[in-house]
Simulated assay, not measured.
Amino acid sequence: MPRVIALLLMLGLAATLPAYEVQIRHLSQPDFLQQVFADQEPQAGLLPLRGELRERVTTVLGHPYRGLRLRYWHTDTTSAWIIDEKSKDMPMTVGVAVGPEGIVDLEILVYREPRGGEVHQAFFRRQYRGMTLGENDALSGQVDGITGATLSVDATSRVAAMALVLHQAVMEGASSP
């Protein structure tokens, strides 16, 4: 009986403690860009989010993106995006590289939730390689989820689709006279 009381007291004490913030940095921004562009020297750019592009991004995310513009890096055919998107309670920072054939690389740079961090594992991230935009700016392929990480998987997929939309806008802008 004393063990049960002690356990209940510990559980009660744990419930009153403030929630802790988890932040796992998996990859830095410079390391992500080096991984994407290797020996090439990418140019940095700022893409304003307005008009039809803002509407497309809002549709893909399911909510308005809070920024007015996004920084990105690019060469003639490849762009890299670093985007924060809310998972459950906290934002995660995702890096996505897009080339002519779709997603080239997807990395979780920073993960801030106590659960669902398995989305940074290579077996999960590899699923996005080669994906393009399908109908209604949805990803062209299915993503197998991870038990206990549904919200993180959804957030990662939204960011992947958003990067594809943004890449398309940049590439169409580059080909305009």
Rank of each mutant, 00 (worst) to 15 (best):
M1A: 04
V4G: 06
L7W: 15
M10V: 12
M10N: 04
L11D: 10
G12N: 11
A14L: 15
A14C: 09
T16F: 15
P18D: 11
E21C: 07
R25D: 14
R25M: 07
R25G: 06
L27E: 14
L27Q: 10
P30R: 01
F32G: 00
L33C: 02
Q34E: 03
D39Q: 15
E41P: 00
P42Q: 04
Q43R: 12
G45K: 07
L47I: 13
L49Q: 14
R50L: 10
G51E: 04
E52K: 13
T58H: 13
V60Y: 13
L61A: 00
G62R: 10
H63D: 06
R66H: 12
R69M: 05
L70T: 11
L70M: 13
W73P: 07
T75F: 07
D76K: 05
T77D: 11
S79A: 14
W81K: 07
W81H: 14
I83Q: 02
D84L: 08
D84R: 11
K88R: 13
K88F: 08
D89C: 03
M90V: 05
P91I: 01
M92Y: 02
T93S: 06
T93C: 13
G99C: 05
P100A: 02
E101P: 00
G102L: 02
I103W: 03
I103K: 05
I103C: 11
D105Y: 01
L106P: 01
L106Y: 02
I108Y: 06
V110C: 02
V110R: 01
V110E: 01
V110L: 01
P114S: 06
R115L: 02
R115S: 02
R115I: 11
G116W: 00
G116L: 06
G117S: 00
E118T: 03
V119N: 07
H120F: 05
Q121H: 12
A122H: 05
F124Q: 10
Q127R: 03
G130F: 08
M131Q: 15
M131P: 04
T132R: 15
T132M: 10
L133W: 09
E135C: 01
E135F: 07
E135S: 14
G141Y: 03
G145V: 11
I146V: 09
G148F: 05
A149P: 03
T150G: 09
T150E: 08
L151F: 09
V153E: 03
D154T: 06
D154I: 06
A155G: 12
S157N: 11
S157A: 11
A161H: 15
V165G: 01
V170K: 11
V170L: 12
P177H: 03
